[in-house]
């Protein structure tokens, strides 16, 4: 078996001693894979991204990047790690320093990493054209460019460092429907052209279904289901996944799933339910679920599900 690009082993993150944002994450991402991460408020998907990009330190557990523990990697070569792992933040306009022009923002990574300026600028020009960023945008300030352009600037800043892994937090949030397709096509093309690995966080299930190869579903800081995207959307095994998928309203009545409306609200990560953390809202809850916490089981098909009574395809 080849070494995964990223491997989380039993990662816990606790803030202020009581907020258990991540409660035991096991996840590996293979090189070249496109993994989608879905979940609602409190699911821990943002924290997971921050742990992966070394912005938040895990309270316990290990993360390995290309076989090397993350802490050791950072100690050995902090800037090298930064080059290899890039992140696109949700609000692209706000992720650009407001008093700098786009040109300066794009050239910043070169300075930070001490890269050859002439070569770097030539590469910027190639990437700018590849990304379809108009030349006149370079002389503008972030608030003067459109949301789509700001995303391209952020992508350019990441690509100039030739990363292996790109974490994209809600890449289409705030974009109009009429332009989101163009951006997603671009991300897919870049994946192939630059041999990238993606972790894509999105609440838009249609987007995840369309562009990812594997989907990971999180609930209250834990993975409840992980499976190849097509299989997961075709036949979800975890009741939470099933409910989540059913919430996506389709314009085509023929493609509409019967909506499963969960009762109650998402519990707080500070005060987790007993047993299976989902039992308070599960439509299929059994007495055992209230006391016995199910482990994340890897099935023979390779699918993973954290449920005592996983759903079977009807």
């Amino acid at each position: 078996m080849t070494t995964p690009l990223v491997a989380f082993r039993d990662i816990h993150v606790t803030f202020a001693g009581r907020v258990h944002a991540l409660a035991g994450i096991d996840l590996s991402i293979a090189e070249g894979e496109i993994v989608g991460l879905v979940g609602e408020s409190g699911s821990g998907k943002t924290t997971l991204c921050k742990v992966l990009t070394a912005m938040v330190r895990a309270t316990s557990g290990t993360i390995e990047v290309a076989g090397e523990p993350l802490a050791a990697r950072i100690k050995r070569d902090r800037l090298g790690f930064r080059r290899s792992t890039q992140m696109l933040l949700q609000d692209a306009v706000a992720s650009l320093s407001p008093r700098m022009r786009v040109r300066a923002l794009i050239e910043e990574p070169l300075t930070i990493h001490g890269l050859n300026a002439a070569e770097g600028k030539a590469r910027i020009e190639v990437l700018r054209q590849r990304l379809g960023l108009p030349a006149e945008a370079l002389d503008k300030y972030p608030h003067q460019i459109s949301g789509g352009q700001a995303r391209r600037v952020a992508i350019l800043r990441a690509l100039i460092l030739a990363p292996q892994l790109i974490v994209a937090d809600e890449p289409t949030a705030g974009l109009d429907v009429s332009v989101q397709g163009e951006l997603l096509n671009l991300l897919l093309d870049l994946h192939a052209e630059f041999a990238l690995t993606y972790l894509i966080v999105s609440h838009n299930l249609a987007v995840v279904r369309r562009i990812t190869q594997r989907t990971v579903v999180m609930y209250l800081g834990r993975i409840v289901e992980a499976a190849p995207t097509a299989a997961l959307f075709a036949a979800p095994r975890h009741p939470y996944t099933a409910a989540l998928l059913s919430t996506h309203p389709s314009v085509d009545p023929a493609k509409r799933r019967e909506r499963i409306v969960l009762q109650g609200e998402i519990p707080s990560v500070i005060d987790r339910p007993s047993g299976c953390h989902f039992h308070t809202r599960c439509p299929h809850v059994q007495p055992r679920c209230r006391v016995d916490d199910p482990p994340l089981v890897t099935e023979t098909s390779g699918r993973q599900v954290r449920c005592h009574f996983p759903l079977t395809a009807a």
Binding site: T53, M55, R78, L79, R82, R83, Q86, M87, L89, Q90, D91, A94, S95, L96, S97, P98, R99, M100, E108, P109, I112, H113, A154, R157, L161
Partner: peptide, 26 residues
């Protein structure tokens, strides 16, 4: 905690660089 500061840290910018290039002008 502004996103643009987080973005700079993700790019690998040092604290000194963030202070002088990004906090100061703002």
């Amino acid at each position: 905690n502004a996103p643009f500061i987080e973005a700079e840290r993700l790019l690998g910018a040092s604290t000194l660089r963030i202070v002088f290039r990004h906090f100061m002008p703002n």
